[in-house]
Design a protein around this nucleic acid. Structure first.
Lengths: 168, 168
DNA sequence: TTAAACTTTCAAAACTTTTTGAAAGTTTAT
DNA sequence: ATAAACTTTCAAAAAGTTTTGAAAGTTTAA
């Protein structure tokens, strides 16, 4: 397989993976493109490479910046904006985990907290089952959340830090 | 908040979370319904409770069985099929992780393996960036995969087993 | 100023996914 | 063998999501 074909395949694969995990396909594709490109690209170049419209390219690039995955670069004497993706995969994973936790997990944790509080008749099986499920899910989510938090700060924690070094 | 309202809220929340993470909303909702219901339900009851069509209920229930989250129960002397969800949240999480790894991560790992092999000119920055990204992503994915695998078998591993006990 | 070079917006169109419901299929009891 | 009770299928419709592109907005240089 030659480089251009390989790039295409990577963009396609990354896009598919993204969409299966709730990330807009185009966003994942633009990210993939920037990941395999040594230097920063302009909106125009992204449009060109992926055959997408200006509006789409613009919105997607802004989203990627919002996710902390891409940065805008300005070059002295040039008006165009250039976009560059961090290529450290560990940073990328961290960043995505962080954002999704904030955007999607946190609101759920808040709701669960409420639902655990719901009072009812302790002899009613309906209530018992509901309460147990809420308590269990809440407990596990909180633990997962704490664990994620610890992992995200792994560099600062000797304990997880040393465990993760095994995997880096 | 009263029980029926709380149930509704949980079903809604679970459904939303599912769809944000690439799981069909209805499937997550049916699962949520079964999670807060002490006993097994029939297709008819699921249709009724969630106001969905027979076809949809049937397909969704079969999908849930395919994910290993729900089991079909048959009662002696009855023709109807009853559906029951495992309520152990640790099992649920394990099961979902296992399935998604198999369905979505494995194919990506296979493609990455190919892409790492792609040969090219070592002085071409295009090639260098591509190759480095592929190698890094591949390495991390493999590690994540190994880690997941270890976690899924945590019960059988003294090392992770003892770490996870802290979180259970 | 002005106009050229860019970026952003958003309503409408295209596309994708999910849902419906009626018809076909299957199983069981008699 | 029949028919009632139940489950499955799938084409068409609805719902949801993403993309387009032209127009509006902004910034900069002269």
């Amino acid at each position: 397989m030659q480089l251009p074909e390989a790039k295409q395949k990577f963009i396609e694969t990354w896009g598919k993976l993204g969409s299966e995990w709730g990330i807009n396909r185009t966003m994942a594709q633009v990210h993939a493109l920037l990941l395999v490109t040594p230097d920063a690209l302009t909106t125009e170049q992204v449009m060109e490479e992926l055959s997408i419209s200006r509006g789409n390219a613009n919105m997607t690039l802004r989203d990627l910046i919002g996710w902390g995955l891409v940065e805008k670069q300005l070059r002295p004497g040039e008006r165009k904006e250039y976009f560059y993706a961090d290529k450290d995969i560990w940073n990328i994973a961290r960043q995505v985990a962080k954002e999704r936790r904030k955007r999607e997990l946190e609101p759920v944790l808040k709701t669960l907290e409420e639902l655990v509080q719901v009072k009812g008749d302790k002899n009613d099986p309906e209530f018992k089952t509901f309460h147990k499920s809420m308590t269990d899910i809440n407990k596990m989510s909180k633990n997962a959340d704490r664990m994620l938090d610890t992992m995200l700060q792994a560099d600062e924690s000797w304990f997880w830090g040393s465990i993760f070094k095994m995997f880096k």
